[in-house]
Design a binder for these strands. Structure first.
Lengths: 147, 147
DNA sequence: ATTGAAACTGGATTAGC
DNA sequence: GCTAATCCAGTTTCAAT
């Protein structure tokens, strides 16, 4: 990944629908060249896709929560993916250092949804304990910057 | 926000560069009507923008971390925004229920960057204590779904 | 107030270099 | 990587509902 690709990605982070011509002007390439670079980055998996950024509450995701997962014994990333992947409200799962084994982020419609989802984590035999932090206010939420 | 807009957003969540014509086919509207609906959602702030989804390690963000922030006394969202907003590695800040007052998510180039950034949190007079969890593996990371 | 059709503009894409 | 040619999407206008 060279500097030019970094600049292209930097622009796309700020505006995922920027035209190839615009990007080309900014980085000093033709639109064609930019398109090929973006296509190649997508083919290599450096770019995994494009998406829209939405105000969660407008879409019925009234509640967000972080759930720390404490397991009995070890848990593999593959097992986590199998267990949490099918739950649509789960938007993110990381294995982490520290007390907890994993951190799960959920976006739900209501507090009772959170309750139900977290409860469903517990039926999983490997999950020993959970600790939930409800998001009160989203202060900053932005794509990482390159510059 | 009506059902049609939900469907449009649902498509854009999966492909943020989908053409208005494609979306129109899927929801039973003309490209024109779709464009206007997207424009209006953007004007109302329901859609805050479009972005690319990238593989962080490809971009020099080798390390991600969650930092729990414990404050002396109260801390307002506005103060958090002022203190953390200028740090480019900070991608997310939420005030949360539970032990910690806020949860900060950072994307950094290296462990020493994490150390430096977390250390910089501490110089802030209001921050009493921090607890850092380093991400070992990103198991799931996806936009929330509407279905 | 919102839509669809048509016309126009300009970007996306392909072919050739 | 660029240019040129083609195609198609984005955008605006306008009439209709």
């Amino acid at each position: 990944m060279d500097q030019t690709n970094r600049e292209i990605v930097s622009i796309l982070l700020r505006d995922g629908r920027a035209s190839f011509a615009e990007i080309g002007d900014a980085v000093g390439l033709s639109a064609t060249a930019v398109k090929r670079r973006v296509d190649r980055m997508q083919a290599r998996g450096e770019i995994s896709g494009f998406t829209v950024r939405v105000a969660p509450e407008e879409l019925g995701w009234g509640i967000e929560a972080y759930v720390e997962i404490f397991c009995r014994g070890n848990i593999s990333p593959a097992a986590l993916e199998r267990d949490f992947g099918p739950i649509p409200e789960v938007v993110r799962v990381d294995t982490v250092t520290g007390e907890a084994d994993a951190l799960v982020q959920i976006m739900a419609g209501s507090m009772s949804d959170v309750e139900r989802i977290v409860e469903s984590f517990r039926v999983n035999a490997r999950v020993d304990k959970t600790r939930t932090a409800i998001v009160m206010s989203r202060v900053i939420d932005r794509p990482a910057r390159l510059d």
